[in-house]
Design a protein around this nucleic acid. Structure first.
Length: 259
DNA sequence: ATGACGTTGCCTCAACGA
């Protein structure tokens, strides 16, 4: 089976491209982030017509996550245990479901904005809660993967140029340590192959010709438990989806499984 | 070709992204 994760930067604005990509890539399960719409505005009919069930958690113009599945959606859970709120709002940044033989989590980790911004400790707190929350699924026999936009470059190789990257967030030791703690719970990075160039970047800023110049980041990850990892036959970043008019600034990360 | 930022809300600009 084929499982993917994609930060689509607005479900409404990207719907036509999403539907076209579902038809060509034929994933069985897709984790989406940055829906930027409320649950009531999720176009479940169009997605259903493409053959997918939808589980979503969206509140409005910011954040929002979903899981699409051709193989059923069961045991849906919104959020994570101990999820920190920002201000008085618990933001829609995690949804988990069992889809056929796998359990997947669609994650949109807070950006952090700047190391001096309140969003930065919020990001670290979210990751700390995630590490604790993931331990049970990580240790289980059911293939499980926490997938999504982690907003962290795990290593300097995951940045197009760490010297030129205006590196406050995404590359700090605190963030990488917090990510390592999630992995230490029993989740391994499913490292994808790039379709072009040396590094499997998943994000390129819209500005400054970053995509044509391959000034990218690898911030979208699939962290898998041993049962999921053992079933992986291939993983790649579909950078072709970053091309053309109306693209998201992220490309899908696709994982193939012998399941 | 992949081309100089895009999306949303109530909006004519601000907030946000990474």
């Amino acid at each position: 089976m084929r499982v993917a994760t994609w930060n689509i930067n607005s479900l409404k604005a990207r719907l036509d491209r999403l539907l076209a990509w579902l038809e060509t890539a034929e994933p069985d399960v897709v984790c989406l982030q940055e829906l930027k719409c409320a649950d009531a505005d999720v176009p479940i009919e169009a997605i259903s017509a493409a053959g997918y069930d939808t589980a979503s958690w969206g509140l409005g113009r910011w954040n929002g996550v979903a899981i699409l599945s051709k193989v059923g959606i069961a045991d849906v859970r919104r959020g994570i245990s101990g999820q920190p709120a920002f201000g008085d709002e618990t933001e829609p940044r995690a949804i988990t479901a069992t889809c056929g033989p796998v359990r997947v989590q669609s994650l949109y980790i807070p950006n952090g904005r700047d190391v001096a911004d309140p969003h930065f400790p919020y990001k670290l707190a979210f990751l700390k809660a995630l590490a604790a929350d993931a331990a049970a699924d990580a240790a289980g026999d059911l293939p499980f993967a926490a997938m999504g936009d982690f907003n962290i470059c795990p290593t300097d190789d995951d940045v197009w140029d760490v010297d030129e990257w205006p590196g406050t967030t995404h590359v700090t030791k605190d963030e990488r340590d917090a990510l390592a703690a999630v992995q230490a719970a029993g989740l391994a990075d499913v490292f994808p192959r790039p379709l072009k160039h040396a590094h499997p970047f998943t994000f390129w800023d819209y500005r400054n010709l970053d995509f044509p110049k391959n000034r990218g980041l690898r911030i979208d990850l699939a962290l898998a438990n041993p049962a999921f990892k053992a079933a992986v036959t291939d993983a790649y970043v579909d950078r072709n989806e970053r091309k053309g008019k109306g693209a998201s600034d992220h490309a899908p990360l696709v994982v193939d499984l012998d399941l």
